[in-house]
């Protein structure tokens, strides 16, 4: 037995989920961009044929760019009163129409946010999030998921994975309990067929052998290559803030005499201030050192610590980079070197 959903019914699914009180996050237009948006109307959801990747990943909906994690005010007699925002009342949410690379970022983010301290803000949102991804039937210019250890139809992180078939239909692969519950709850929109019809999945040849990256990184902390490739890095956060797996944040207090808020804000290792110590010393004093950190974190440290690389090969970092610093090319160069 296989499960099928039509493009028409996928839109209907978004409509019914909105009606049922879900926050529905889908690729939609925002001015001239395609972005992940909490849509108000199912009509806003773009047909899957009209985009490959929205300009940033949907991580903002589990890890907001700016989030209050503690409120404080001065009560009677100047005594501080603390209050932690409660996310229990947040609606369940569903990401519809993301690509498998973005979905695969969730199991990666789970590792860091659930490591020495379980981040309640991340996990509250994560638990309430269902992911219905659509496998890519064509690859974008900058895509390199197959080099990063994934594929255009990877299942990691998805609750339901849709694959394009002929005639505006999608074969639905239900992958988790969350996915099963959705497929049951909105069962009238899915159709059962005898066997899975032929599906269209993009072919994408790997650009490099990812297994060769870490052995070189292990031995070349001080290699001149870093300056050669990264002297041009501008030191902005465009790559990190579009990246599905970048997860660094800064904590700041904003308030006045009456009270205030402690915020958890996105941060980036590209920034000179990121590692600057209170003493004024900065252990990563130049841009090539910061870029090296970015690569080492994703392809060495994360792998050593959690058994996963912090890159899914979406290629957004390169596409968004103001100086077109090409991570795929850098990795290709590294993979071609003798460790």
């Amino acid at each position: 037995m296989a499960t099928i959903i039509t493009a028409e019914n996928l839109k209907q699914l978004a409509r019914e989920m909105l009606k049922a009180g879900y926050r529905v996050i889908a690729p939609a237009k925002q001015a001239d961009l395609v972005v992940f948006k909490a849509i108000k109307d199912a009509q806003e959801m773009l047909p899957e044929s009209e985009y490959i990747l929205p300009q940033a990943s949907f991580k903002e909906f589990v890890f907001p760019r700016c989030e209050c994690i503690l409120r404080y005010r001065f009560g009677e007699g100047g005594k501080p009163v603390f209050e932690s925002p409660n996310l229990d009342g947040e609606p369940p949410q569903a990401v519809i129409g993301c690509r498998p690379c973005d979905a695969a970022s969730l199991p990666i983010l789970d590792k860091i946010f659930g490591w020495d301290y379980v981040d309640p803000f991340y996990f509250k949102r994560r638990e309430k999030t269902a992911v219905i991804s659509v496998a890519c039937s064509r690859a974008g210019e900058g895509c390199f998921c197959t080099s990063a250890g994934y594929a255009p139809d990877s299942t990691a992180g998805s609750d339901i994975l849709l694959k394009k078939c002929a005639g505006g239909k999608y074969a639905a692969e239900v992958l988790s309990d969350k996915g099963r519950q959705l497929a049951e709850k909105f069962g009238s929109l899915f159709e059962k067929v005898e066997a899975t019809p032929p599906v269209e999945v993009a072919g994408l040849n790997p650009a490099f052998d990812v297994e060769k990256i870490k052995p070189w990184l292990d031995k070349h902390f001080d290699d001149p290559l870093w300056l050669e490739i990264a002297a041009r890095c501008m030191g902005c956060g465009t790559c990190a803030y579009g990246c599905p797996t970048c997860h660094c944040f800064d904590m700041v207090d904003e308030g006045d005499l009456a009270g205030g808020c402690r915020l958890k804000n996105w941060d980036t290792c590209s920034s000179a201030l990121f590692t600057k110590h209170g003493s004024g010393h900065n252990p990563r004093s130049s841009q090539e050192q910061r870029y090296r950190q970015r690569v080492l974190h994703k392809f060495k440290y994360y792998l050593e610590k959690f058994g996963l690389r912090a890159c899914v090969g979406c290629g957004r970092c390169t596409a968004r980079c103001p100086v077109n610093l090409d991570l795929r090319g850098v990795l290709q160069t590294i993979a071609g070197k003798q460790a």
Partner: peptide
Amino acid sequence: GRCVRCYACRQV
């Protein structure tokens, strides 16, 4: 409202 404070504007 869209700004993510990546400071690309400043850096370039």
